[in-house]
């Protein structure tokens, strides 16, 4: 699986894929990737361990194990998804499993930042709309959605939604500048100026 993985790069404007629905509030990053898998110096083999303990408990019935979800790439979740630990290993594991975007009622702050930083757009929808998607998926066992980031729309044969995403994130994906390092480095001089202005840099002489 890992050898097929190529991380996203450049502009992200359209994402088309099968939905995978994961029902539950407050799903934390320890569940997405248990701590024992954090003993690694790269992210390469995390994909296979995503939701490891939940999947073992459900013995093949976890959404990430179902045959019909094998090629899914749009994860649909409920509220406060990704709460808890700041481990970027969580979105990295989801991405390496095949997730390209997430639609949910709400996301934990650090998880959201981590997703944006690695090229996984996270969209929010009201609870009612998420339930509509989850019900549709439950009844039909399949939902192919097309996300148009420029207009913040999600379209399918039967359902259409106006997605919400932070404007700063939307613009970064459309321009391809979501990998922040180079944008931040553009302001090299401003960073130096700021460093020199901060009061505590001057009185923390024994810091250096």
């Amino acid at each position: 699986m890992e050898s097929d993985f190529t991380p996203p790069i450049g502009k992200i404007s359209n994402i088309k894929g099968q939905c995978i629905s994961l029902i539950g509030n407050d799903i934390d990053t320890d569940r997405i990737i248990p701590a024992r898998f954090l003993k690694c110096v790269n992210f390469d083999s995390l994909g296979e361990s995503v939701f490891e303990d939940d999947r073992k408990t459900l013995k093949g019935k976890h959404p990430f194990d179902l045959e019909e979800n094998k090629n899914a790439s749009l994860l649909v979740v409920n509220s406060n998804f990704g709460c808890g630990s700041s481990r970027e290993h969580a979105p990295q594991a989801l991405m390496r499993w095949g997730i390209k975007a997430i639609i949910g009622e709400s996301f934990a702050d650090i998880f959201y930042s981590n997703c944006i930083a690695i090229g996984i757009p996270c969209f929010t929808l009201p609870k009612k709309s998420i339930e509509e998607i989850q019900n549709y998926y439950c009844n039909n066992q399949s939902l192919l959605l097309e996300i148009d980031l420029k207009n913040s729309l999600a379209k399918s044969k039967d359902l259409n939604f106006n997605l919400e995403i932070k404007e700063s994130s939307r613009k970064m994906f459309l321009s391809g500048e979501w990998d922040a390092t180079s944008t931040l480095l553009d302001n090299k001089n401003l960073i130096e100026n700021k460093f020199n202005q901060l009061p505590y840099i001057k009185f923390n002489t024994n810091f250096l």
């Binding site: 110096v41 700063s168 613009k171 700021k194």
Partner: peptide
């Protein structure tokens, strides 16, 4: 005080005065 610049799209570039690292989230 720590704002370096306003970035396109509405986020801010913030200077970090102290950065702490440990073995789990830094190797990558």
């Amino acid at each position: 005080l720590h704002k370096v610049s306003s970035l396109p799209g509405g986020s801010d570039q913030i200077f970090i005065g102290l950065h702490l690292i440990h073995e789990v989230t830094s190797p990558q």
